[in-house]
């Protein structure tokens, strides 16, 4: 029975494809593929139909399907194009087979439905799997990228290291921050570590707790942690919440913190030439002329 339907479908593939294309084109109007050029749409539809028929002929030739889905994903077409296309195909094929048969009763209809379903289901399953697989892949890549960005450590100069923090801090990230901070401080032999929270939008009790813990741990391994970038609203929240940050140094800006860090390491910034000297030199050269 199934073979017979398959024969009908393959023999009259041209007619089915014709009806399928018409249907798909009507779907195109004002839909997901509105921005796609007609040519590309046409050629992709042809390819789609070919993939469907090869799959029916060979009982699911996976390589062709994989290739096609990869192409569609790379083009950035929505998943609904594929599911709609296959639904339309199912409907059209069933319609066509029924119209070609003389003797139609309920058994026959259910048989047709069953066998067409058998052709289409594996295709849908595979294509949807390919799609979601690619999404998951992108998601995991982004997660890794985000993690790399979440706790960077910059050894700006000998004995001084800066950790700029941007974005909200949760427990998982706080753990990462602490590990990176401690390992980096030891690796770069930093006497002072500046933690810059300019980019942290909210400092609540939880975030403050994590920051305090990190600072304490930094003290234990033998360097000093200075908290910089405390904005007015953050200072207000910290005091209103009754968080005690008095145990380690804090500064309003990275510049001030850096100055303190230089003081701790017994250094300071000096201009190579003072402006007065410059002026004197200028006057001297003018006199000489």
């Amino acid at each position: 029975m199934d073979q017979q339907f398959k024969r009908i479908a393959i023999e009259h593939s041209d007619a089915i494809v014709q009806r399928w294309l018409e249907e798909i084109n009507s779907l195109k109007e004002g839909n997901y593929t509105a921005s796609i050029s007609d040519e590309l749409f046409e050629s992709t539809n042809r390819e789609f139909v070919n993939v469907i028929f090869t799959s029916i002929k060979n009982q699911g030739s996976t390589a062709a399907v994989e290739e096609f889905s990869e192409k569609i994903i790379n083009l950035g077409w929505p998943l609904s194009y594929i599911t709609d296309g296959l639904q339309v195909f199912r409907r059209e094929t069933v319609d066509y087979i029924l119209s070609q048969s003389d003797k139609v009763d309920s058994d026959f209809i259910s048989n047709v439905l069953k066998s067409v379903d058998l052709w289409v289901e594996p295709l849908i399953r595979q294509l949807v799997n390919e799609y979601s697989g690619s999404w998951e892949h992108i998601l995991s890549l982004q997660r890794v990228a985000l993690q790399e960005l979440s706790a960077p450590l910059i050894p700006v100069m000998d004995k001084i290291t800066i950790m700029p923090l941007v974005g909200t801090i949760d427990t998982e990230r706080a753990k990462l921050i602490m590990e990176n901070l401690l390992e980096g401080a030891i690796k770069h032999n930093s006497e002072v570590v500046l933690m810059d929270i300019t980019g942290v939008p909210v400092v609540d009790t939880m975030v403050a707790h994590h920051i305090i813990q990190a600072a304490e741990a930094v003290r234990l391994i033998g360097s000093t942690c200075i908290l910089v970038g405390i904005r007015p609203e953050i200072a207000q929240t910290i005091v209103n919440l009754g968080i005690d940050l008095g145990k380690f140094p804090t500064k309003s800006s990275l510049r001030k913190g850096f100055k303190t860090a230089l003081e701790i390491t017994n250094r300071k910034v000096i201009d190579l030439k003072s402006q007065e000297e410059d002026a004197e030199n200028l006057m001297g050269s003018l006199d000489g002329e």
């Binding site: 030891i186 930093s190 741990a217 234990l220 391994i221 033998g222």
Partner: peptide, 24 residues
Amino acid sequence: GIQPAVAITLIDLGIHMKNVPTAL
């Protein structure tokens, strides 16, 4: 020379060793 892992454990245990001077 307190190791990072040791420091984290101590902090997690709530031992801050406040009166102890440390160095890298």
